[in-house]
Write a protein that binds this DNA or RNA. Structure first.
Lengths: 204, 204, 204, 204
DNA sequence: AATGAATGAGGTTTCATTCAT
DNA sequence: TATGAATGAAACCTCATTCAT
């Protein structure tokens, strides 16, 4: 009995937390982080000022939580390539880029904020983003190294430049087609083209 | 006589304006836009609070001016390719990217702010950035169109994706080597590699 | 049966009330009234916030109750002198002061708070303190009047001043030896000296 | 010219500071420190909230300043006794007590707050009060030592108790006649009686 | 009776901008 | 023109108290 009550309370609490997170996300994405006040957040969530602080420590902490969620979802979308896999390496890379793209498409508001103004917001936020960027570059350089070892990718090209270029191409595509773009594009198609571009370039 | 006085006053005025702009740029780049107060700016410039408002309308307007300066310098660095020119098209593109890169290297503090937190700061700032981005994409798509017309670049690839990828590759390189990087890299070398990557891809 | 249940509930209730009072006293004395929050009190008592309000009306009311307890204990320690008693008047006064001193020593935490910050806390608290102070002065002036009537104390001295001085001497001793002092002093010895001082002064 | 302007501004500034101090003192003494908000202070002073912070760091800092003022005035009123002086020692002590009393009478609102709620308000405030109390006791014990050396005061009495009792008598008199009392009493008369009490006691 | 989530008034402080000098 | 004191809206956050469960 008592347990039932406690459990239910727990669920309600969790639900309320999610609500505040969700409405805050919306408000942040509409107004931008710096132009959003705690007042805006609580008004949107329909709770009292104090209630906000019952669930979150501060404005930056709720943002950090939103960011952490996105990054962890993204980490799930990124997986290493496997030369012994049935699929070709190119197909595997296309699959990863597609998943990343889809993940971001499914989290457009959040993607929008993170891409627009996450940088320089807060020391902890910066640290998380830096860490994620390092992970991404590490993953990319590693993948490129495998490709080079297999004789698939050119040996003479600087790995750092290649990783940078690929990352930039993907990032810009996200900016153009997810953050700025109005209508949704087909993730797989974009991914295929970016990968084709990255592998074979533009020359005929 | 009076004219001399007026002229001199004009020069003094112009000089002071430049001073405030320069010190504000430094402070913004050190602390970030949102963490910088008018107090910080006037203290750094050594003028009174009121004086600041004699020269600039508001905190966001001085930032807008700094941004406008950078964008106009960048516009100068970007020039169209000319098929009838002596230099090869690739050489011309490398030259443009090199100039852009060098320009940003020479304006590191400003580049840093613009890349980190210019977005979402203010409607006018956003508009300027959007316009510039559109210009860049337009220039790129145009260049690609020329390349395709000459049979130099693949016909079957989506121009928008190509423009996006190239722009992203350059932007990321700026982020990595100018904004984040500690030591200065050789602009020409980076440009050559990005262009090589973009034209011929990574595959052997 | 039912009666037994009711009685037991009553006892539990009383016990819990005492618990909250006791832990609150400790917390108040450690942190001071104004630096103590209801959160501190309920955390220390191990009850829910709402429970606190089942037993006490407000933060100031629990303090008032603590104060009332101390004052009523103190009232018990103060008793009138009796000229027809076997003990000398001086001995009787020494006994009273000793008892007061001991009472306060036994309630150091409470004494500490009352002496430090009871004043200006709340209208009702102020009223209680005023009433007690008036009682004390009344008792003292009365005792002095008896002494004067018996020819024991000087006629020409202002009774109000004498009462004030004695009260102040005792109060300061409490401040120095109970509130501020680390180690416990012997109540009787202090009492004897204060009385000696008050009766015969410092001159040789 | 410029100097005149600067000087005048300085004076205005100083005047405004004094104004805020004076009205704050009044409000504190009327409502008590803890029941007074910055809003109360600025409303009473007729300045904007921000203006307050132009002159004072915080609520506790303005209180600290008021306290420091009173303590420094009091320090001026307390001076050592001099056995070789023409006036008798008793007369000298009476003079000191009178001056202290008068000083406090002239600063009734401030005296009221300090006596009522200065303790436990803030670490720095506590430190100042502690230091002053130690000074007072030191001065008193020293004076008593001189009296004992001259054979004027009893040797067998504990100096600490004597100092405590005298200090308490004076403090209580201040409480009764300055802090609580409605009409002003004659400082000299009270001082004479307290000193008489302290020197020769109450017995006939 | 007991709980603790929710409330919202009110706290202190900051800061972009104005304006009298 | 230059100054910097003054402004006051609005920021973030706390906490005594209430109330649905």
């Amino acid at each position: 009995m008592a347990d039932g009550r406690v459990l239910r309370a727990e669920r309600v609490r969790e639900r309320r937390r999610k609500d505040i997170l969700a409405t805050s996300l919306r408000v942040f994405s509409e107004q931008g982080y710096w132009n959003t006040s705690i007042t805006d957040l609580v008004r949107a969530a329909g709770v009292a000022r104090g209630t906000f602080y019952l669930y979150f420590e501060s404005k930056s902490s709720i943002f950090l939580e939103l960011l952490t969620n996105l990054l962890s979802t993204l980490r799930g979308a990124v997986s290493g390539v496997d030369p012994s896999h049935d699929d070709s390496l190119e197909e595997q890379v296309v699959a990863v880029v597609t998943r990343v793209f889809e993940t971001l498409q499914q989290n457009r508001p959040l993607t929008r904020i993170v891409f627009r103004e996450a940088v320089g917001l807060d020391a902890e936020v910066d640290a998380q983003l830096d860490a994620f960027n390092r992970e991404l570059r590490g993953y990319l350089e590693n993948t490129i190294a495998i490709g080079q070892a297999m004789g698939w990718l050119r040996e003479e090209m600087d790995r750092s430049i290649m990783a940078t270029s690929v990352l930039g191409a993907v990032r810009e595509a996200v900016l153009v087609y997810v953050v700025r773009g109005k209508e949704e594009v087909e993730a797989r198609k974009v991914a295929e083209q970016i990968v084709a571009f990255s592998l074979r370039g533009m020359t005929a």
